[in-house]
Each structure stands twice: as C-alpha cells, then as structure tokens.
Amino acid sequence: MTAKEWPLYEVFIRSGQGLAHRHVGSLHAADATMALENARDVYTRRNEGLSIWVVPSKDVTASAPEEKGEMFTPADDKIYRHPTFYNLPDDVKGL
C-alpha cells in the first residue's frame, strides 16, 4: 500500500446540450486536473460527454438518510402544490 491514497472525486457529466450534469460515479486522482482527465478517460469513452464536473468527495455535504423523515415527508401532504389538485371543467382550455 502507498503511504497516502489519492483523494476521491465525484464525477458529473453533461451528456448533451440542454441537459443537466448527472452524477456518474467517482474516481481517485492526485489533483483536480488529473481528476478531469481521468473522468474523461473512464466515463466518456463512448462520446457520452460534452462537459465534466469533478468535485472532491469530502466537499460534498449530504443530507443524512436518518433525517429522511423530517427532511422530505413534510412536503408529502401539501398536495395543493401539484396541478392535479385543482378540479376544473374539462372544456376549459389553456390552464
């Protein structure tokens, strides 16, 4: 084993103009430039990418799964945020 492992980076790829970057996986690299090049080699061998972001994994702040309840259920019952909540006559157009 080497004394020090290369840091972990999370990789995000935009696969087409007009699409958002999407998380595709992670990789190790000594620096950010190397992380970008490794991401290009590892995750875009088949023209999957037009743009790459790499982010040191240690800098990602994630919500905790244990807090899933308080984080996300409160939105469940606010059904008035969804368009289907409203009953309108079928023959009204443009809404």
Binding site: L27, H28, A29, E37, N38, D41, V42, R45
Partner: peptide
C-alpha cells in the same frame, strides 16, 4: 502505476 493510466495509455 494506476488503472486510470492504463486507460489513458490505451486511448
């Protein structure tokens, strides 16, 4: 030295 470099060399 790394698998990533194997891929780079192959490219």
């Amino acid at each position: 030295p790394t698998i990533e470099l194997d891929i780079a060399f192959a490219n």
